[in-house]
């Protein structure tokens, strides 16, 4: 009896030590898969917004992801009028209006292609479509393009930093 209860105690004591060890190793293993600090620090890109031409879609790069920059023409702005969802996503730098967005389909992350003649985007992977303002035109994408964190500094746009304009978009649920 005494013997078996002593074994029982040893079993429990071992169990407790093993549980602490297992928990500790899980924490270590989880952290080993986290993005490295060097990866996180390389996360800023500055764009000079004065070089873009109207109606010409340019793809920039930020954190390894494509960033769509489209300077909107007067006719696009005209079309957006009254469409609150489109207007709320507009990014104004100086006198120019831009659509700036992460160029990955919000469905599963392919890069939609810009179609200059119809002034919209089409995703080849599962057939999703987006307007020139970045809103969904055809499912399966669940929402418009995501907008990267940005800060307007004069003629420049710093991607990766959160400025007041971006904060407002985020708080109102315009982007994630």
């Amino acid at each position: 009896m005494q013997d078996s209860s002593r074994r029982g105690f040893m079993g429990k004591a071992f169990g407790a030590v093993a549980a602490v060890g297992a928990l500790g190793s899980l924490v270590a293993m989880k952290s080993s898969w986290d993005p490295l600090p060097s990866v996180k620090e390389a996360g800023f890109t500055t764009l000079d917004m004065s070089i873009y031409e109207e109606g010409v879609m340019v793809t920039e790069k930020w954190r390894g992801k494509p960033i769509f920059v489209l300077k909107k023409s007067a006719s696009t702005m005209e079309k957006e009028k009254g469409n609150a969802a489109a207007e709320a996503r507009n990014i104004k730098v100086g006198d120019s209006n831009f659509m700036v967005a992460i160029g990955l389909c919000t469905h599963l992350g392919c890069i939609p292609a810009f179609r200059a003649d119809s002034n919209d985007f089409k995703c080849a992977c599962h057939g999703g479509e987006f307007t020139a303002s970045g809103l969904v035109q055809k499912v399966p994408p669940p929402r418009g393009f995501d907008i990267p964190p940005f800060k307007i500094e004069g003629n420049k746009l710093v991607l990766g930093e959160v400025g007041p304009e971006f904060k407002k978009m985020k708080d109102t649920g315009i982007t994630l």
């Binding site: 898969w33 993005p35 490295l36 990866v39 954190r63 390894g64 992350g109 669940p142 994630l176």
Partner: peptide
Amino acid sequence: MVITNLFAGGSLHADGLVEWIRGDYVPAQA
């Protein structure tokens, strides 16, 4: 890219999980 994005769970937006699986914002060295 597409398969790791599945782990965001659609509207759950578990982007942190996706970045954890990749060890980066996009598929890269890690």
